[in-house]
Amino acid sequence: MRGARAAWPRWAQVAAGVVGLVGAAPAAAADEGGTVVNCTANPAALQPAINAAAPGAKLLVNGTCTGPFTIDRDLTLLGRNRAVLNGNQVGPTVTVGAVQVRLDKLTITNGKANLGGGILNNAGGTVTLDDSTVERNTASAGGGIFNSSGMVTLNDSRVERNTASAGGGIYNEVGVVTLDDSTLERNTAEGDGGGIDNGGGTVTLDDSTVERNTARFGGGIFNNGTGTVTLEDSTVERNTANGGSGSGGGILNSGVAVTLNDSTVRRNRPDNCAPPGSVADCTG
């Protein structure tokens, strides 16, 4: 047998070496500077891993993890092969304490709560979503995300098909919400703010889209109280408000200011911005 193997042509020996390297790749993936959490083998594995993690650690998440989950320390959760965090309809899918949390390449879904069906940031925490999706969650306020007084940043992420009484996609109470190259789409609120309900904080959209959201008032964006909203190179389009004329299909501004910089508000029903004149450079 040794002689037969030695007789292999050179190309076959090289191919065998390549196969060996490819086979080794999955083991090497564990060397990404983090701890692997295999929810494919054990759907309940993530919360114990969070509880055991040192502050500042990174967890590499595989499969669909069944929650809900509470994060009480600085932590990064990095999804591998589009991992899913499933809230199991028994609370916010992810509740964040007064810590810094990064959620990367994850789908956050199936949460049901009073505040923040998908993500509840209610203690002044800092939450960053990178290349992630928050979808199909429900709440009274903040179907996708509820941000109280903390900071939430979305980079290259989506908030879609969430439902709430107020803030179908995102409810920002008095905190800071920033969307960069991100999308709010097909979220629904029974009352205010299909896409975003900004109760009195600061919201900034940069190169982002708010589209096909629905509410009674402020189909795309509802800005209220001391709230300020700034759109940079962004679009608010094809949103619907069901409150009749003046209900702000795209944007309803009863807050301090909504500013459009190189941004477009168009094709919203029954109007783009309300009340008339409340958003400079917005017509129709």
Rank of each mutant, 00 (worst) to 15 (best):
N213I: 07
I119N: 08
T153F: 04
I50M: 10
V174R: 13
A30L: 09
G191S: 13
G244H: 05
L77P: 06
A16G: 14
N110K: 12
W11D: 09
G244A: 08
L260C: 10
N261T: 15
D104L: 03
G33R: 11
R266T: 15
G67K: 07
D197V: 04
S254R: 13
G144N: 07
L46V: 05
E190H: 03
A189K: 07
A52V: 01
G246T: 08
W11C: 03
G142E: 00
A16F: 01
R80G: 03
A24Q: 09
N223F: 13
P43Q: 01
V22L: 15
A139Q: 06
A53H: 05
G175Q: 03
G218I: 13
V18G: 04
A45E: 02
A15G: 11
A83E: 02
C273S: 10
G144H: 10
G97I: 02
V19D: 00
T188W: 00
R10N: 05
A189V: 15
A189Y: 05
A24L: 14
L85K: 09
G218A: 13
T126G: 06
D104S: 12
L77C: 06
V159R: 09
Y171S: 10
N122T: 06
L120P: 00
A113F: 04
S182A: 09
A123Q: 15
E211N: 12
N122I: 07
A141I: 13
R216L: 09
T204E: 12
G246R: 12
N224S: 14
W8N: 12
N172E: 04
L260K: 06
N86C: 01
S245R: 13
Q100G: 05
I119L: 14
T126A: 14
I196G: 02
D130A: 02
T109E: 11
D130N: 15
C282Y: 04
G34Y: 08
T64A: 14
G194S: 03
V265Y: 00
P276R: 13
V236N: 01
R10C: 01
S182I: 12
